[in-house]
Design a protein around this nucleic acid. Structure first.
Lengths: 214, 214
DNA sequence: TGTACATCAGTGAACGCGCGTTCACTGATGTAC
DNA sequence: TGTACATCAGTGAACGCGCGTTCACTGATGTAC
C-alpha cells in the first residue's frame, strides 16, 4: 500500500485493520468499556464517520476485539503447554498438560487484564433491541476446548466417570476463570506475586483432583 | 417521619436511605454500571444535587450498593446452609455445609445477576486520582469468610495439609465465582436450567475433592 | 493512450443523549433567649 | 409563649464532557470505451 510509507493520503488503504489494532490497544489499556469508536478513529487519524465504512457500529468493533482477545488467550495457553517438559508416563504427561494450560490461562489474565476482560465481555444488545427468535449459537471458545480436550486425555488415563466430562471441563474452566477475575479485577487483586502463586497452585491442585473424581 | 404519609414536603426526611434503595434497584436491574446518581435521584423524586448532601458522589453511592449486595449474598448462603439437613457424622455434616453454602452462592448469582455483579465491582478511582500511599485494607468479604470457615471445619475432619487452608479457600471461591460469572454473564449464560444444574454439581464435586487434597 | 464516469472511502458538522458535578439560591427546621 | 436567627436540606440552571450515530458532501480510484 503506497499509503504506508508516504503517509497522509485520502484513502487509508487498510483502515479496517488499523481500527482493529487501535481498538485492541484500547482494550489492553482499559478493558472492553474503553473500546470506543471515536477514540479508535482518533488514534488512527481518521474521522469517526469513516469507521462506519468498515463496521456496523461499536458493537461489531467490540466483537472483533473479543475474537482477537480469545485467540490470544488460547495462544498463551498453547505456549505454556509447549514449554512444559513431557513425561514417559502418559498419565503424568496429561496432568502436566492440564496444569500448564491452566497456568497459561491465568498468566494471560494477570499479564493482560484488559484484554482478558475483553475476551469475555458481552457487547450488550442495543437497548430494547428485540431478542432474536433463536439466539445465534455461541462461537466455540478455543480456550475452553483446549482445556476440555486436555481433561479428557487425563480422564482417559484413570477411572473417571464418562458423561460427566463436559461438566467436569466446565468446572475446571470455572476455577481458572474465577481465579483470573479475582486476581485481576476482584478482591484478590492486591495479592503479592508470591501469595498469588500459592493461590494459583492450590487452584490447580483442586482442578486436577476434580478431574480424577469427575 | 411526617413526610412518609403526607408526601411532598420540602425535606424528604430519609433521603439517604431512599437513594440507597433506588440505587440497589438499579443494580438489581442492570448491574453496577446502571447505578447512576441522576437516575437514583430521579426515582426518588429529588434533584440530582440533593444527593450530594448525602454522598460524596457516584463512587460512594456505588460502594454503598456493593456493601449491601455483599451482605445479601452472604445471607443467601446462610439461608441455603440453614435449609440443609444435619448429619450425625460430623465429616458429612461439614461437607454438606460446604456444598450448601456454595449452592447458595451460585443460586444468588443466578437469581440476582445484577446485584451479584455489583457485589464485586470495583468503583474505579476517578481518572488520574493519585494512588493512596497505602491502599485501604479491603473489607473482609463475608461470603468468603463463610466459605473459608466451612472448609476449615471440613479439613479439620480429614488429613488436610495445614497452612494450605487459606489458599484452598481461595481456590474454592475461585470455582464458585467463576461458575457464577460464566452462568450469569458469560459463555454459559444460555444453558438450560437442567444443564446448569449438572455443571453446578460437577463444580461442587471438584470443590469438595479439592478440600480433601488441600 | 486518453478520458468520462461510476463507485468507493473518506470529511466535517451536527444531533441528541445522559452523565457527574458545581453554583448561587431558598424553603424548612429547630433552638436560644 | 413568641420570635430572631443559624443551620440544614433541598432547588434549578448550567457547565463541560464524550459518546454513538447520521447527514450531505467530496476527493481519489479504477475501469469501460
Amino acid at each position: 500500500m503506497a499509503a504506508t510509507s508516504a503517509g497522509k493520503t485520502y484513502h487509508h488503504g487498510d483502515l479496517r485493520n488499523a481500527l482493529i489494532c487501535a481498538a485492541v490497544d484500547l482494550a489492553t489499556e482499559g478493558g472492553p468499556e474503553r473500546v470506543v469508536l471515536r477514540e479508535a478513529a482518533r488514534r488512527v487519524g481518521v474521522s469517526p464517520t469513516a469507521a462506519y465504512r468498515h463496521f456496523d457500529g461499536r458493537g461489531e468493533l467490540l466483537r472483533t476485539v473479543r475474537t482477537h482477545a480469545r485467540r490470544e488467550l488460547a495462544a498463551a495457553m498453547e505456549r505454556a503447554a509447549a514449554r512444559e517438559p513431557g513425561a514417559d508416563d502418559p498419565g503424568l504427561a496429561a496432568e502436566r498438560r492440564v496444569t500448564a494450560l491452566c497456568r497459561g490461562y491465568v498468566g494471560f489474565a494477570v499479564e493482560q487484564p484488559g484484554l482478558y476482560r475483553a475476551a469475555f465481555c458481552v457487547p450488550g444488545p442495543a437497548v430494547d433491541e428485540p431478542l432474536p427468535v433463536r439466539p445465534p449459537a455461541e462461537p466455540e471458545i478455543l480456550a475452553f476446548t483446549l482445556l476440555r480436550e486436555a481433561l479428557e486425555a487425563l480422564a482417559g488415563q484413570g477411572a473417571a466417570r464418562p458423561g460427566g466430562r463436559p461438566a467436569t471441563a466446565a468446572a475446571a474452566w470455572s476455577a481458572v476463570h474465577g481465579l483470573s477475575l479475582l486476581l485481576v479485577d476482584g478482591p484478590l487483586r492486591r495479592l503479592s506475586a508470591q501469595r498469588r502463586g500459592v493461590v494459583v497452585e492450590a487452584t490447580l491442585a483442586m482442578v486436577v483432583s476434580g478431574a480424577a473424581v469427575g
